[in-house]
Amino acid sequence: MGFFSKLFGRAADTAPAVIEVTPPGASDTNASSPDQTELGAARTALSLEDFATALTKAAPLMQADDKAVRLDALQICALSATELKQWPDAYTFTQKLFELSPTAQHALQLAVTAVMSGDAKRGEAWIIKTLEINERRKVLSPMLIRSRYVNALSEQKQFTQALPHLDWMKSVYLPLNNTDPAYLALRGLPDFNTFLTQSWPVVSASLASSQAVIWYSEMLPYLDNIGQSAVRAVLRTQLSVDS
Rank of each mutant, 00 (worst) to 15 (best):
M1D: 11
M1Y: 12
M1T: 12
L7D: 09
G9R: 10
R10V: 12
D13A: 10
P16W: 09
P16Q: 13
V18T: 14
V18I: 06
E20N: 08
V21F: 04
V21Y: 02
T22G: 00
T22S: 15
P23R: 11
G25Y: 03
D28M: 02
S32Y: 10
D35F: 03
D35H: 08
D35G: 08
T37E: 11
E38A: 13
E38Y: 06
G40C: 03
R43A: 07
T44E: 13
L46M: 15
L48H: 09
L55Y: 12
L55A: 10
T56E: 10
A58P: 05
A59V: 01
A59W: 05
P60N: 07
L61F: 08
D66P: 00
K67N: 07
L71S: 10
I76Q: 04
A81H: 01
K85T: 14
Q86F: 02
Q86D: 14
Q86T: 07
W87Q: 00
W87D: 00
D89W: 03
D89F: 03
D89H: 05
A90F: 01
Y91K: 08
T92Y: 02
T92I: 01
E99Y: 06
P102D: 12
A104W: 02
A104K: 00
Q105F: 04
S117K: 02
G118N: 05
G118R: 03
G123C: 02
E124M: 12
E124H: 13
A125E: 15
I127F: 03
I128S: 13
T130W: 06
I133W: 06
N134Q: 07
R137Y: 09
K138Q: 15
L153D: 08
S154R: 15
K157H: 15
K157C: 03
Q158M: 09
T160R: 15
Q161V: 03
P164C: 09
H165R: 09
L166M: 15
W168A: 14
K170C: 03
S171G: 15
S171D: 15
Y173R: 05
N177P: 01
N177L: 05
N178K: 13
T179C: 07
P181T: 10
A182C: 00
A182Q: 12
L186W: 01
G188K: 11
G188C: 10
P190E: 02
F192M: 04
T194I: 12
T194M: 10
F195A: 08
F195H: 09
L196E: 03
T197V: 09
T197G: 04
S199E: 07
S199V: 09
P201S: 13
P201G: 09
S204K: 15
A205L: 06
A205P: 11
A205N: 15
S206F: 06
S210N: 15
S210Y: 13
Q211W: 01
Q211F: 04
W215V: 00
W215N: 05
Y216A: 03
E218Q: 14
M219V: 06
P221G: 13
Y222I: 00
G227K: 11
Q228Y: 01
V231I: 13
A233D: 14
R236G: 00
T237F: 07
T237V: 06
T237I: 01
S240Y: 11
